[in-house]
């Protein structure tokens, strides 16, 4: 049968193409444009080639922020993923407890970022905050405005509080989709609780975990609002992440060229890491256990 070409189809997708063009492609191209130029106000632009990129990649400020970002992202992944799996495993599968747990889990996700920041900003204050006051009462010298470790702890705990729910909900969805027959079969096989987790639940959660890791990595790597509200990037530069640095550069110093170059590099880093995560986790799922003959 001959394939019919219908050019009308292009008109059908035109609205979407226009929308994507205006929201993504054109702004991105503008940024690319800035990244290779220098501006002196008055709409005067000068071509500088890859100078901004060279400068950026050699800059210690960028390196430090990048390392902080990586430490932050990997820390929260290391905490939120196992914690999320653990909580999802403990959640009831049926009965009145299900809606209660789901609503409780969804609550943090419904709070806007800056509100979360404000909540923890107040919560952690030594003078009026419940957490700060209590910690200092039991003898821990906790002050996130002065102590970098306290600032980091606050930012990480805040993110865990805000976003572990997402991992929980994703894992829970993966868990409840496992047919009861799998658990029965495992019982008949005499499999241990650990074996059920390792050989049934974990493989069955694999695809949702992949999504959870990707989402959490991307979001945490782009984190801005919460640390900005709580610590403002301080004390010193200790919680200045790439995004905070970028905003300082673009809006604070109005260095449009370097900021544009940084945005592009930032974007490419996220893209690269997401791709690596995706590939690694996908391959891990397809990983085959060697059978006895080859062990």
């Amino acid at each position: 049968m001959e394939k019919t070409v219908n050019n009308k189809a292009w008109f059908m997708v035109l609205p979407v193409l226009l929308l994507v063009a205006f929201t993504a492609v054109i702004p991105l191209m503008t940024v690319v444009n800035y990244a290779f130029q220098d501006s002196f106000g008055n709409n005067q632009f000068f071509w500088v080639g890859i100078e901004w990129f060279q400068e950026l990649l050699a800059s210690e400020r960028f390196h430090d922020a990048l390392v902080r970002n990586l430490i932050f992202s990997f820390s929260i992944l290391a905490i939120e993923i196992p914690l999320g799996i653990g909580i999802a495993l403990c959640m009831p599968k049926k009965g009145w407890g299900v809606p209660v747990c789901l609503v409780l889990m969804a609550l943090p996700l419904l709070v806007p970022w800056n509100v979360v920041g404000t909540i923890w900003q107040v919560f952690g204050r030594a003078d009026i905050g419940l957490l700060g006051y209590f910690l200092n009462l039991i003898g821990i010298n906790y002050n996130y405005t002065q102590d970098p470790i306290a600032a980091w702890a606050t930012v990480i705990v805040m993110d865990v509080w805000h976003w572990t729910s997402l991992v929980v909900l994703l894992c829970y969805a993966g868990l409840v989709s496992i047919p009861e027959a799998y658990y029965q079969a495992a019982r008949i096989d005499g499999a241990s609780r650990w074996a059920v987790f390792r050989y049934i639940q974990l493989p069955k959660m694999h695809s949702v975990l992949l999504i959870a890791v990707l989402l959490r990595f991307m979001d945490s790597f782009m984190i801005y609002t919460e640390p900005f509200v709580v610590t403002g990037g301080g004390p010193g530069n200790s919680t200045t992440f790439l995004s905070i640095d970028l905003v300082k550069m673009a809006i604070g110093q109005f260095d449009l060229g370097p900021a544009a170059a940084m945005s592009l590099v930032y974007f490419l880093i996220i893209l690269l890491f997401s791709w690596v995560f995706y590939t690694v986790m996908n391959n891990a799922g397809a990983e085959k256990k060697h059978y006895a003959g080859e062990e």
Partner: peptide, 10 residues
């Protein structure tokens, strides 16, 4: 019903 991550052999 099989163990999803194990080979047929396993």
């Amino acid at each position: 019903i099989n163990y999803p991550a194990l080979t047929v052999y396993e």
